[in-house]
């Protein structure tokens, strides 16, 4: 099939950037969206044009590296699918496709479709861990965990940290990501110990990074390739309320 692409091109962080029109010729419906871009890039290289820069790594939907807004939707139109797992059979011959980077103040564009997502790492560094200060590896099953808690924690832990929630949110809020991480720990006994400090630390870092505020649009849930539910945002709000009522030390 033949397609027309409008792709965001931006030399570097200081460049203003603009949409460029490129034809995508002889695309097989078996290709993934990223393979289609590979073909377009080969064409561009042949013509002596700088190829389109985009992020990717595993190309199997588990690393969270790929990050394209396709026709206004992070990771494209398919439910529960990363853009690397989206196949061209979901498009038809003659389609016009708009490809843009994640748009958020917290995710500045580095080049073309590649954005700097280290804000997410800094939120994790602020509290997305369990402190283990000493001792050996504990025995498996030494701490009993209910099936429901294990399952819920696992649902939250499915987050691959791609940032599609931020890209989809009308406010560029990072709440769904932070909520998934906070909930994943808060549902497990190992994480509960620091639950109160964690939620405060992660939210404060989230605010420092310049993410917007959640106004319950629910766009994040629709865009999430791992279908993380906004029920985790409610869970984080509960955790936050609990923590603000907890006695503080020092």
């Amino acid at each position: 099939m033949n397609l027309t692409l409008y792709v965001w091109r931006q030399k570097n962080a200081d460049d203003k950037g603009r949409m460029e029109k490129y034809p995508a010729k002889n695309i097989s419906s078996h290709m993934s969206f990223l393979e289609m871009l590979d073909v377009v890039n080969e064409d561009l290289i042949e013509q002596g044009v700088e190829p389109i820069a985009f992020d990717h790594d595993c190309r199997e939907g588990i690393c969270g590296m790929c990050s394209l807004v396709v026709n206004g939707r992070p990771h494209g139109p398919e439910k529960a699918t990363t853009i690397c797992q989206l196949h061209m059979r979901h498009f038809s011959d003659g389609d016009v496709i708009y490809i843009e980077p994640w748009r958020a103040k917290a995710f500045p564009v580095i080049k073309d479709l590649v954005v700097d997502r280290s804000a997410i790492d800094r939120i994790m560094a602020a509290g997305g861990f369990v402190s283990i200060n000493t001792g050996g590896v504990p025995d498996a099953n030494a701490i009993p965990i209910s099936k429901t808690d294990a399952d819920t924690a696992m649902d939250a832990a499915a987050c691959i940290g791609c940032g599609a929630c931020v890209a989809a949110c009308k406010n560029a809020s990072g709440m769904l990501f932070v909520a998934a991480k906070v909930s994943q720990f808060a549902h497990l006994p190992q994480g509960k110990v620091e639950a109160s400090q964690r939620v405060r630390a992660m939210i404060d870092q989230m605010d420092i990074e310049g993410f917007g505020n959640c106004t319950n649009f629910q766009e994040c849930e629709a865009a999430c390739p791992k279908e993380i539910s906004i029920k985790f945002i409610a869970k984080m709000n509960r955790e936050y309320l609990k923590s603000s009522m907890a006695p503080t030390k020092g």
């Binding site: 708009y98 809020s173 917007g212 505020n213 106004t215 629910q218 849930e221």
Partner: peptide, 17 residues
Amino acid sequence: NRASRPVKYVKEVNVES
């Protein structure tokens, strides 16, 4: 919230909101 997205999308769609 407006400041959190300084550059708008060219193609803006609403899915769930």
